[in-house]
Each structure stands twice: as C-alpha cells, then as structure tokens.
C-alpha cells in the first residue's frame, strides 16, 4: 500500500503542480491589470497558451559558449521544483531522509544558482555584440573590459543569493524552531495533520502556525523571500528592463523560453505550496485534501501580484536594508518561538 501511494504521489503531485502552475501567471496578471484599471489577458494566456505558442515557434540556437547546457538549465530548474514538492509529501517521508527543511533549502539554493549559470552562458546581441560605429571602423578599446547584460545580471543574482534571500531561509526555519523538528511532515503533524487519514473536514481542527506571533513574523519573512527568489517586483533587479532587459534569460527563445516559463510557473506554485505545508499544516497529499492545499497556495501569488503592482524596481541601495530588515523580523520570530 505504501509503495503504491509512493508511486501515485510521485506521478500525480507533479502533474497537479504542473497544471495548477499554468494558471498562476494569468491570475497574477489579471490582478495587476485590475489594479491598473485594465482588463488584462485571459487567465490561461500567459501561463499556458504562451508556453504552447513558444513550443511551436521556430527553434533558435542561443548565442552561448555551451548552448545545450544553457538550454537545459530551465528543465533542471523545473525538475528541482517538482522534487521539492515531492519532498513535502507524507508519502516521501522515508525516502533517504530527504524530507527535511535542510534539503528544501539546499534545493532552493540550487534553483537560485541556476540564474548565475544562465547569466554567464548567455551572449545576446543587445549589448556587447551590438557594435558601435567606431568599433565597426576598427577602433580598439585598450584596457576596456566590455560586459554583457547577462553578466551584469549574473553578478546581481549572486548578490541577491548572498543577501536578498536571507528572509526566505529564515522564513523556512521559523516553523522548525517552533515545532522542534526539521522534518517537513513533522512540522505539519505538529499543527494537527494526520498522516494516516486526512479529510477536508479535518482542516478546521488544525492549529496553523500562521495564527501565532512567530508564525506571522516568519510568514512575512517567507513572503519577502518568495518575491526575491521569483525575481518579482520590487526585487526584479536581476532582469530589470531599465538596463539589463531580460537578464540571464534574454537568449531563451522558442521551446527554451517555454521551458523557462514552466520553470518559473512551477517555482511560483511550489514555493507557495511549501508555505502552505509549513504555515497551515496541510501538505500536498493525494485525495480531496489537495484542493484546500492548492487553494491556499494561491495566497502568495495573489499577494505578490498586489505588491508588485504598487512597487518600482528596487536597486541594491534599497534591497540590502530591506532584506536585512525582514531578516531581522524573521529572527524576532525565532526569538518568540524559542521563548
């Protein structure tokens, strides 16, 4: 029975995550559009039809020193995200001892690192390769290193990983401090989740961490980290169109762009799903209980859409203090949890 559940979970949870995640960009765009007094695109267009369109576009070779590796990075990201959501399911508890917050944090770090690789592997025409007239005529620029937009983005991603994503990891570990375990399912069980049988009606008997002071502080921290890892406004410095345009993903076209969209959509959903598991105590399980999980997982994307509609892109001048501020908030949450 356990083996059967394991196999079914391994197949169906990523499928559900994939299907649901195609709706998220559309929902976000619709909310932003309504705030901006626009109609906005049909909900499935940005996340599903756009992907389908890109898959069927003419395949274009990226300008990159390692084109195949560059193309495979979004797929690796997509795989990582599905792996993360599986690690939060009760069916995977006994697999190699991986279902811990440490494993999730590590995989998220890898996800962030992918953007550095993308940035270093892309050589779009938008910057260095678009020559100026003096260069065309043969001018030699001595002692002058020219930097691609994507390289600038890679450096920015590194800075974001170093400082910007602190709040995310603090937000991940606040539940561990409150519950005294780094097991993800253990955190859910602490909040009243029953691993053997869980029905929709059992939701009302849960005691979510979110209703506690450390929970609220940790959730705020996690939300800021969510925006950072998604490179969503106001933390979209990595691909701000004011200078680096699309940044590391500038060279993705056709099916590669489709796979990048899928990776991003999956990140949106999975990160939110992890939040629901940690702060509401409802992990993704097969059965009707998956419905409330999916619905609650819309909280973060909706909040992100609202925040991004009202904020400009921040530079590191603002990101550093903001990040440190929200990290401090998370630490206060941890102190409350210890007390």
């Amino acid at each position: 029975m356990e083996a059967k559940e394991f196999v079914l979970t391994t197949i169906f949870i990523p499928v559900v995550a994939f299907i649901v995640s195609t709706w998220i960009p559309g929902i976000m765009r619709k909310i932003q559009a309504r705030i901006q007094l626009r109609i906005g695109p049909p909900i499935l267009t940005p996340g599903f039809w756009a992907v389908l369109k890109f898959i069927y576009k003419e395949r274009i070779e990226p300008v990159s020193p390692f084109p195949r590796l560059y193309h495979s990075l979004p797929l690796i990201g997509l795989f990582l995200m599905f792996f993360i959501i599986l690690l939060t399911t009760p069916a995977w508890v006994d697999v190699l001892g991986l279902t811990t917050l440490v494993a999730v944090a590590g995989l998220m770090k890898v996800e962030e690192m992918l953007y550095i690789f993308m940035g270093n592997l892309s050589r779009s025409i938008m910057s260095v390769r678009m020559p100026y007239p003096d260069q065309v005529k043969g001018a030699i620029l001595k002692g002058n290193a020219r930097r691609f937009f994507e390289q600038v983005s890679a450096i920015r991603t590194f800075k974001l990983i170093s400082i910007g994503s602190f709040p995310l990891y603090i937000g991940l570990f606040v539940p561990a401090v409150v519950t005294g375990t780094i097991s993800i399912v253990g955190v859910a069980v602490y909040q009243g989740f029953n691993t053997t049988s869980f029905a929709i009606s059992d939701i009302f008997s849960l005691k979510p961490l979110l209703w506690s002071i450390p929970g609220v502080l940790g959730a705020i921290s996690y939300f800021i980290g969510y925006l950072v890892i998604l490179n969503e406004y106001p933390f979209s410095i990595m691909h701000t169109k004011a200078d680096v345009i699309e940044g590391p993903t500038l060279e993705y076209a056709a099916w590669a762009r489709a796979s990048y969209y899928l990776m991003r959509e999956a990140t949106m959903f999975v990160m939110s799903s992890v939040f629901v598991t940690l702060y509401f105590g409802i992990p993704p399980v097969l059965g009707w209980a998956l419905i409330p999980h999916v619905l609650l997982a819309m909280i973060l994307p909706v909040a992100a859409a609202v925040v991004s509609a009202f904020t400009p892109v921040l530079t590191f001048k603002q990101i550093y203090p903001l990040s440190l501020g929200f990290t401090a908030l998370g630490i206060v949450g941890i102190i409350f949890a210890i007390l």
Binding site: S127, V128, M130, N144, A145, R146, R147, V152
Partner: peptide, 9 residues
Amino acid sequence: AEVEVPLGM
C-alpha cells in the same frame, strides 16, 4: 581595466 556596459542603439 574599465568595465563598460553598452546600452542601445
């Protein structure tokens, strides 16, 4: 070496 970031045309 100076680092140059070109923008445009």
